[in-house]
């Protein structure tokens, strides 16, 4: 569960951006739509604990994360939050499988090669395990990106513009994949995007202006 209350952010020399209050549960994934500059990425970064709001409060499950110190937030994020970024970034020198196993290690989970392979198989990437991640197609990279975020079974999954550079077919496929996997592991899903093609797939959405 994620709850936002009276949240506001302000960047230097700019007007503050105010966000509407909302609650999001694991059974109702949330789509946050907004054009460029509407503050949707800022919202995602605040929920992920990467930037501090000017005012307001954020709860994830029973924890008010706006009251946590940076190091406490780092630990909380590692345990509870999965973030799938807009651009797929990987550890350049490692293979797909090694990348996934390193992220298991970072999240203090037991390193388990067969679990990584299961995830790759589930998302149709089993024959890409030993390739360098940067050699994959954009769609494939995006899928590995999701695996990395989902694999630690977070309470909250945040996806930033997951379909921005994909064609219609792949955009729909990616959205379905996220919804399905979030439902499978019972995680709360918040997708932040400007891509209106996804709106039909989410019953719970809000638009930032």
């Amino acid at each position: 569960m994620v709850r936002i209350q009276d949240l506001e952010v302000q960047y230097q020399g700019e007007n503050p951006i105010h966000f509407p209050d909302f609650e999001c549960h694991s059974d109702r994934p949330l789509l946050v739509l907004g054009s460029s500059g509407s503050g949707k990425s800022s919202l995602l970064h605040m929920i992920a604990g990467l930037i501090k709001p000017r005012k307001g409060k954020i709860w994830i499950d029973d924890t008010e994360i706006t009251g946590l110190s940076q190091s406490e937030m780092d630990v909380f994020r590692r345990k509870k939050i999965g973030v799938a970024l807009q651009k797929s970034v990987f550890i350049h020198s490692l293979t797909v499988l090694e990348n996934l196993m390193y992220f298991q290690y970072f999240s203090h989970a037991k390193q388990n090669e067969s679990e990584c392979m299961d995830w790759l198989t589930k998302l149709g990437l089993e024959n890409k395990a030993d390739q360098k991640a940067f050699t994959l197609s954009q769609g494939e990279q995006q899928r590995v990106n999701f695996i990395r975020a989902l694999m630690k079974k977070p309470s909250l999954l945040l996806a930033d513009e997951p379909s921005s550079s994909l064609d219609d077919e792949n955009a729909i496929m990616v959205a379905r994949l996220l919804l399905h996997q979030a439902d499978q592991i019972g995680t709360t899903l918040i997708v932040v995007t400007h891509d209106h093609r996804l709106s039909s797939m989410f019953s719970n959405s809000m638009t930032l202006v």
Binding site: A48, L50, D74, R77, R78, V83, L85, V89, F90, I91, H92, Y102, F103, F106, S107, H108, R148
Partner: peptide, 19 residues
């Protein structure tokens, strides 16, 4: 410089500063 994003990603994924 080249691995700035990688490093941020690792930190986001939970990698410690010592690592």
């Amino acid at each position: 410089q080249e691995r700035k994003k990688e490093t941020a990603l690792m930190r986001l994924g939970g990698a410690s500063k010592i690592f």
